[in-house]
């Protein structure tokens, strides 16, 4: 092996690590990097929370993982395969295994709740069947079960735009879980929600990830909320990782180095 460092686990024959990021850089305009040389390993379980000031590249980092944003250079190894170099079909097949939850929920507003859940299966179902709404019976049953599980069992045929923010985010999470993902990403999933609903949404993600036995990466700007649920905290500042460790070890000094200044604490 010429790259023994890339994934030592794979070399030993163990199942490859869900996610390994190597030297990831991203700049939207030349010479102004948003992400600089990010290295990050995600183990097969655990709730990783990324904190950091606005505009520091948290969202870009999350989006580089499933290439909603094209990385400029570096590697994103998902289960040992480099996402950055994948062709269209392989990228599509990889995206099916990576669930994503969004800040603005990103539901298809004019579709019913149940159909939004079934949209999570679009990567597996042929476009033709999706068009005719002929989803496999197993998918339909899974969708209804999941809708019960997120507590929206009686809203299946409501249009998504009639739901409240918290309800919409539940649908967003259920849609991601429908994918049978091996990794769950969440980009500011609670920023548009009130504090109580935010906690419920975080709990739901923890539970879902526990059932699926998959890791979660969440970026969040609410430090207290992040700390409360995190197994691991990544602190970012100006496009670099400046803290990586358990939430308990995160001190005010760390927070100062992440957010800068001290008066706000």
């Amino acid at each position: 092996m010429t790259l023994p460092e890339a994934d030592p686990q794979a070399a030993r024959g163990d199942p490859p690590r869900p996610l390994a990021i190597r030297g990831l850089c991203k700049s939207y305009t030349r010479g102004k990097p948003v992400l600089t040389e990010i290295d990050l390993d995600i183990e097969s379980r655990g709730f990783t929370v990324i904190i950091g000031p606005s505009g520091t590249g948290k969202s870009t980092l999350i989006r580089c993982i499933n290439r909603l944003v094209e990385p400029t250079s570096g590697q994103v190894l998902f289960e040992g395969r480099d996402v950055v170099r994948m062709g269209r079909t392989e990228l599509r097949h990889t995206r099916r295994r990576i669930g994503m939850v969004f800040q603005e929920y990103n539901l298809v507003e004019r579709l019913s709740v149940i159909e939004n859940l079934l949209c999570g299966r679009l990567g597996y179902v042929s476009p033709w069947r999706a068009w005719l709404r002929r989803f496999p019976q197993s998918d339909v049953e899974h969708a209804f079960t999941l809708l019960e599980a997120v507590g929206l069992g009686d809203l299946a045929y409501q249009r998504a735009d009639s739901l409240s923010g918290g309800q919409r985010q539940r649908v967003g999470i259920a849609r991601a879980v429908m994918q049978s993902p091996r990794l769950l990403l969440a980009d500011e999933p609670t920023s548009s929600l009130d504090p109580k609903t935010s906690v419920e949404i975080m709990e739901l993600m923890v539970n879902m990830a526990g059932e699926l036995e998959i890791p979660v990466i969440v970026n969040i700007h609410d430090v207290a909320l992040g700390r409360r649920f995190a197994d691991r905290v990544i602190g970012m500042s100006e496009g670099r990782i400046v803290y990586d460790g358990p939430p308990g070890d995160l001190t005010d000094a760390h927070l100062n180095s992440i957010y800068g200044g001290g008066g706000w604490l």
């Binding site: 499933n66 909603l68 599509r92 097949h93 990889t94 995206r95 099916r96 295994r97 990576i98 669930g99 994503m100 969004f102 603005e104 929920y105 990103n106 539901l107 298809v108 507003e109 004019r110 579709l111 159909e115 949209c119 999570g120 299966r121 679009l122 990567g123 597996y124 179902v125 476009p127 999706a130 068009w131 967003g172 849609r175 991601a176 994918q179």
Partner: peptide
């Protein structure tokens, strides 16, 4: 809106499915 389109692309949906389930409901 780009949001739903992005979400469907993130599920690994093929282009035609994104058209049918992401764009069409919005422009119908």
């Amino acid at each position: 809106q780009v949001g739903p389109i992005e979400a469907l692309r993130a599920t690994g949906a093929p282009r035609f499915s994104v058209l049918v389930k992401g764009y069409w409901p919005q422009v119908k």
